[in-house]
């Protein structure tokens, strides 16, 4: 597909004149036309539009943040189904339960991480999922925190499952088994006389 795309797009003509709003700098405006002092009605409408957009973005951000809940429930159900004995199915479920939150938290963020870092030193480090909803007027911190919390909950659930399967070294037995037996100071031989 990549190849085909490259071949098809040798050149392109953009016919749509939408340089209206984002005016090119080199063409000067006509006399008496002030771009900044536009119609108040117009400005109002655009502000409203922007607010609506912001509200929509905020709403979407919350939706994204809450998405793991479904996942969590689903996972919980699957784990319950899988039982607590070690076999192929339960191990698969547990590993996917561990993998999903990790990939959600980190994996997707990879591509644009640096951008996020540029924008805000604080909210930073991850969550490219929230990139589309970034807006100066929208506070994405709360959904982000929720998202992180829920995914962490998922991770905890996974680890808890791992533990119930007995695959975490949380017992004394797990640490003692690898210890060699203590050596003895004394040595005694002998027995029955050889005959």
């Amino acid at each position: 597909m990549e190849k085909g795309k490259g071949l098809a797009r040798r050149w392109a003509v953009e016919f749509a004149e939408n340089s209206y709003s984002s005016s090119p700098v080199d063409v000067p405006d006509p006399m008496g036309f002030s771009r900044s002092s536009s119609d108040p009605d117009d400005a109002n409408a655009s502000r409203q539009k922007k607010e609506a957009e912001a509200a929509w973005k905020a709403q979407k951000a919350w939706e994204v943040a809450q998405a793991p809940v479904k996942n969590l429930l689903m996972m919980g159900f699957m784990m319950w189904m899988a039982g607590s004995t070690v076999h192929l199915f339960s191990i698969g479920i547990t590993f996917s339960a561990l993998w999903q939150p990790i990939s959600a938290l980190q994996g997707v963020g990879k591509v644009k991480t640096f951008k996020v870092l540029q924008h805000s030193g604080m909210t930073m480090f991850l969550l490219a999922v929230f990139e589309p909803y970034k807006d100066p007027r929208v506070d994405t911190l709360a959904p982000k925190l929720l998202f992180i919390a829920l995914n962490l909950a998922g991770l905890v659930l996974g680890i808890w499952k791992l533990n119930t399967l007995g695959l975490l070294p949380t017992h004394a037995s797990d640490w003692v088994s690898s210890l060699p037996p203590a050596s003895e100071v004394e040595y005694a031989g002998g027995g029955l006389p050889v005959h």
Binding site: E186, Y187, A188, G189, G190, G191, P193
Partner: peptide
């Protein structure tokens, strides 16, 4: 000192 033996 640590070597012992026994006889049955």
């Amino acid at each position: 000192p640590n070597i012992y033996w026994y006889s049955v």
